[in-house]
Write a protein that binds this DNA or RNA. Structure first.
Lengths: 213, 213
DNA sequence: GTCTATAGTTAGATAGAC
DNA sequence: GTCTATCTAACTATAGAC
């Protein structure tokens, strides 16, 4: 748990169910309108509950937003361990890119909320970016740098390689509306995501001079 | 002019000045909070004008949003002609990537507003994406495909190459807060953007098998 | 634990004096 | 062309009956 929330430790069954309904609804609304643009009324309607219940389970709109962001950060961290020093660059980078594209497929709303939060200046996640997130980039950059030192990949900037992977993969969640419009799809399919992952892995690994057998 | 707006044809000097003040302020607020989250009051405060004046020059909040988006789309189109069939892939792609990174540097707010609009499902730009934007991708994909057919670059997906360039370049505008936090910068410098452009051009061109002299 | 009713505030938009 | 005063609607949040 990275962010402090006011959630109950041992929730009852009703609470558990309603909190989940509200969190699901909040994800949809915050992804569509951002924190300021989303309304508690609309979240309640989407959850199928009276507005007062939302305030009962989550003290304020901002507390609810914190809970949603907290879940997203936990999700992000779970995919963060793909880059390990003992792996080969091809394995580690390939696996990381694929897991990020799969997150874009399975959790598009989480990606959109995170993107909106960052775009708006990270008023809530600012501290997380400067501590946990920064530390993670430092560690993984050191791993990438060791690959460079061993001549396993080209001498590129580790940090900017990470930015490239983040941007290219998250794009398939955040900009899905544009991609669908441009490709003439109604909705991106599993094959689209697999194809995108293959394509990205191929271009980025080759672009870094990684030997792919 | 891609979007229909209600702007006056031959504006007087006062109107011209005040419209510019309002548009500038609106850019800041829409970038920070999205369409729904931004308030006319805050836009007026940022512009240094009474709220009623905003409604005098732009009939409604949505009309103001249309005007801002219209300017952004015109700006986008101006950078769109970098990929020409007669150029070499290295020149054309390199120039396009660099111009997109420079747009991220010079017009970060425009990029953020565009991103927020797409993330929220493109309620206003949906038609633009399906017509102009889709047509542009078709034309440029044909150019890239001709390079593939001529053996000048690897057989990658032209559309997904365009998505990669869009995502990687716009990332430096949209996610600048995260990049600054992770790199420990207070603000990204000109050198940061130049470095990012060089890095992206190097990785993406090599990744596509483009011969770079 | 649920939900109606409502308080208190702020939103977008406009009328009308200057 | 400017801006105060004000309208109605919608907002977050809470009190209190069930």
């Amino acid at each position: 748990m990275v962010l402090k929330t006011n959630r109950v430790e041992n929730p009852g069954r009703i609470r558990q169910k309603n909190e989940m309904l509200i969190l699901r609804a909040a994800e949809i609304e915050f992804a569509r309108h951002g924190f300021k643009g989303a309304t508690v009324q609309q979240i309640a309607d989407t959850a199928g509950l009276p507005k007062a219940n939302v305030h009962y389970y989550f003290k304020s709109k901002h507390d609810l937003y914190l809970a949603v962001l907290s879940d997203i950060v936990e999700l992000w961290n779970s995919a963060f361990d793909a880059i390990r020093p003992e792996d080969s660059p091809a394995d580690a980078l390939g696996r990381y890119i694929r897991s990020k594209v799969m997150l874009a497929k399975t959790h598009p709303l989480a990606s959109k909320i995170f993107a909106t939060e960052i775009i708006s200046g990270a008023p809530t996640l600012g501290k997380y970016l400067k501590s946990n997130n920064r530390q993670w980039v430092r560690e993984k950059s050191a791993v990438i740098q060791s690959w460079i030192d061993q001549g396993k990949i080209d001498p590129i900037s580790p940090e900017h390689l990470i930015f490239l992977i983040w941007s290219a993969t998250q794009h398939y969640a955040d900009f899905s509306t544009q991609i669908e419009a441009v490709l003439g799809r109604k909705k991106l399919t599993s094959k689209d995501f697999d194809f995108a992952a293959d394509n990205l892995i191929r271009i980025i690994l080759k672009g870094c001079g990684v030997k792919t057998p």
